[in-house]
Design a protein around this nucleic acid. Structure first.
Lengths: 224, 224
DNA sequence: TAGATTGTTAATCGATTAACAATC
DNA sequence: TAGATTGTTAATCGATTAACAATC
């Protein structure tokens, strides 16, 4: 993992996809692939693939291409999937529980070590091999176990306050499902947003746009 | 909603965020706002806001700025939130049920009219005001109710086949939670992906990058 | 009218694509 | 060695920012 420097977010966001495709090739026992072949598979340009990879070092070999297994491993390391960064979940409602159950944290570079909520009906219930703790014990837990990142599955209105507490406990990495723009209020914070509401609305735009085009197509060629 | 043309995806993805911020301003009884003020609030440039909005028409007034309520409504219309596009959910496992419960479809331009699964243990259970139907009745249902879009909360390996069936039933808009690149195998299809796994890995990269920087900061200035 | 702020054109910046020399 | 394909530099394209005339 030679270079790095400051790689653009556009490149970073493509890494998981490379990782995924290389994983599939690996399962199909493909041992080598050229940027051209991979580009065709992923609907990218070969140039882009080579540029992207060269942000992190030269993983290929001229005249040969890339070794699938090696590249897969390398990209995993670049993303830090070989680590097990300790992480907690705040908010064990519907969404929180589902995320906890659904994600493969171990294969994504994390280890979920604690789940917290303030609802008495939820506290004490089990999710995976963990039990939901009272949010009142959050401070204690963090001082003892030093989680590095937090998943936020809490209502919009509580987010600000919770983040302030987490920051005071040394956590400044947030996987944020809350409908709230963290990065505006806090500096020096890493935030990866999953704004499902925004995604659904964006989808809505595209659906309507597509059907509008269809209609105007029909107008233009009423014969068909 | 004058112009439109083909607006870039970058702009479209910002629309929900504009909508959200304008909604908040509305709640705070703010009646007018200039691009400069809004830019400061959202941490954008005033130029970008004016450029973005002008993809769809001139909603402002020189010397005054924008009327918050009017702009909020307009952006809602642009995204098609005033429609109620009928939509079905395929896959009522953990993730599917949570999405069904969690999202505010009515406020996002959709109406969830059916939920399908092939697991006998899940079929017949209730989610919201709906009951999970046997996937075997999918064809019948679609011919009768004409859903326009589908949410895909199914395992990766089933996705391709399900999409083929849905396409044959006239559905070509997919809000895709499946870890699978639909758009590669199907053309003329609208796909909005929610790749939670990719998001978590991207987050992992950022977490590790940030802590690496911290370390090297410490190296550079060991005095502090 | 004077001040403010838009809509829009021009300039800049960054990301993607193309080209090609280096080299396996 | 000849063929293939990389790593990297240069060209293009698109998106963001700056500037300003139009106008409320």
């Amino acid at each position: 993992m030679a270079k790095r420097g400051n790689v653009s977010l556009s490149v970073i966001r493509r890494l998981p996809r490379y990782y995924r495709f290389l994983g599939e090739l690996l399962q199909k026992n493909v041992t080598r692939i050229s940027s051209r072949e991979l580009a065709q598979l992923m609907q990218l340009t070969a140039s882009q693939i080579r540029q992207d990879l060269n942000c992190f070092g030269g993983f290929g070999q001229q005249g040969y291409g890339y070794n699938v297994a090696a590249l897969h491993t390398e990209i995993g390391k670049i993303m830090g999937l070989d680590k097990q960064t300790p992480m907690i979940l705040i908010g064990a409602g519907n969404l929180g529980r589902t995320i906890a159950k659904h994600m493969n944290f171990e294969k994504s570079g994390f280890k979920l070590i604690g789940i917290f909520d303030n609802n008495p009906e939820i506290i004490g219930t089990g999710v995976r091999q963990l039990t939901v703790s009272d949010a009142a014990h959050l401070r204690d837990f963090c001082l003892r176990n030093h989680p590095v990142a937090a998943i936020l599955c809490i209502p919009r209105e509580n987010t600000r306050q919770v983040v302030e507490e987490l920051l005071s406990l040394g956590i400044r990495n947030f996987w944020n499902f809350s409908h709230y723009d963290l990065s505006l209020d806090f500096e020096n914070v890493v935030v990866e947003n999953v704004h499902l509401g925004d995604s659904l609305m964006t989808f809505c735009y595209q659906v309507n746009e597509a059907s509008a085009e269809e209609e105007s197509d029909e107008e233009k060629s009423p014969i068909f």
